[in-house]
Simulated scan of single mutants.
Amino acid sequence: MSLNYTREKLYSAVEILASSNESIQDRLHSAYINALIRLHEPNDFPEELREEFNEINKRLTEIQATSNEGSVQATTTKMSEEEAGNVAEKIVTLYDQIARKLGAMESQTILSV
């Protein structure tokens, strides 16, 4: 995948987190199933940011589902507002890091032409 694709999916996740009146836990669940779940290839992230994404993914899937709800919903429904807010903040920060990296790469390309 390309870094543009990664930025697009992270932007979608940030938009979901910011544009709903649902609880932060429900917004995290929606952000994951509608955007973040598509980021699963090792090359979706630069090496220096893979661990940050893996940590987000781990935090959103750490509780095993007991019915047909799925592990993300099982996890997010058990999160406090503070925990959910911390994960949401990590998603926004990761989006910012990817956007800055992509911007720097695009600037390099323009300067080398």
Score class of each variant (00 low, 15 high):
residue 1 M to R: 10
residue 1 M to E: 05
residue 2 S to T: 14
residue 4 N to Y: 09
residue 5 Y to S: 08
residue 5 Y to V: 12
residue 5 Y to Q: 07
residue 6 T to C: 13
residue 8 E to L: 11
residue 9 K to N: 10
residue 11 Y to G: 05
residue 12 S to H: 10
residue 14 V to E: 11
residue 17 L to Q: 07
residue 19 S to H: 11
residue 20 S to E: 07
residue 21 N to S: 14
residue 24 I to G: 06
residue 25 Q to T: 02
residue 26 D to L: 09
residue 27 R to M: 06
residue 28 L to S: 09
residue 28 L to Y: 02
residue 29 H to S: 01
residue 29 H to Q: 01
residue 30 S to I: 02
residue 31 A to E: 02
residue 31 A to R: 02
residue 34 N to T: 09
residue 35 A to T: 03
residue 38 R to V: 10
residue 40 H to D: 12
residue 41 E to L: 13
residue 42 P to W: 04
residue 44 D to C: 13
residue 45 F to H: 03
residue 46 P to E: 15
residue 46 P to L: 11
residue 49 L to E: 13
residue 53 F to I: 05
residue 57 N to W: 08
residue 57 N to H: 13
residue 60 L to T: 03
residue 61 T to E: 10
residue 62 E to I: 08
residue 62 E to F: 09
residue 63 I to D: 00
residue 63 I to V: 14
residue 63 I to G: 00
residue 64 Q to R: 15
residue 69 E to M: 12
residue 69 E to W: 07
residue 72 V to M: 01
residue 77 T to N: 05
residue 77 T to S: 09
residue 78 K to T: 04
residue 79 M to N: 00
residue 81 E to K: 07
residue 81 E to N: 11
residue 81 E to F: 06
residue 82 E to T: 12
residue 85 G to I: 01
residue 88 A to M: 08
residue 89 E to R: 15
residue 92 V to I: 15
residue 94 L to Y: 04
residue 95 Y to E: 03
residue 96 D to C: 07
residue 97 Q to G: 00
residue 100 R to L: 14
residue 101 K to D: 12
residue 103 G to R: 02
residue 105 M to T: 10
residue 107 S to M: 15
residue 109 T to P: 00
residue 110 I to H: 03
residue 110 I to F: 02
residue 112 S to Y: 08
residue 113 V to F: 09
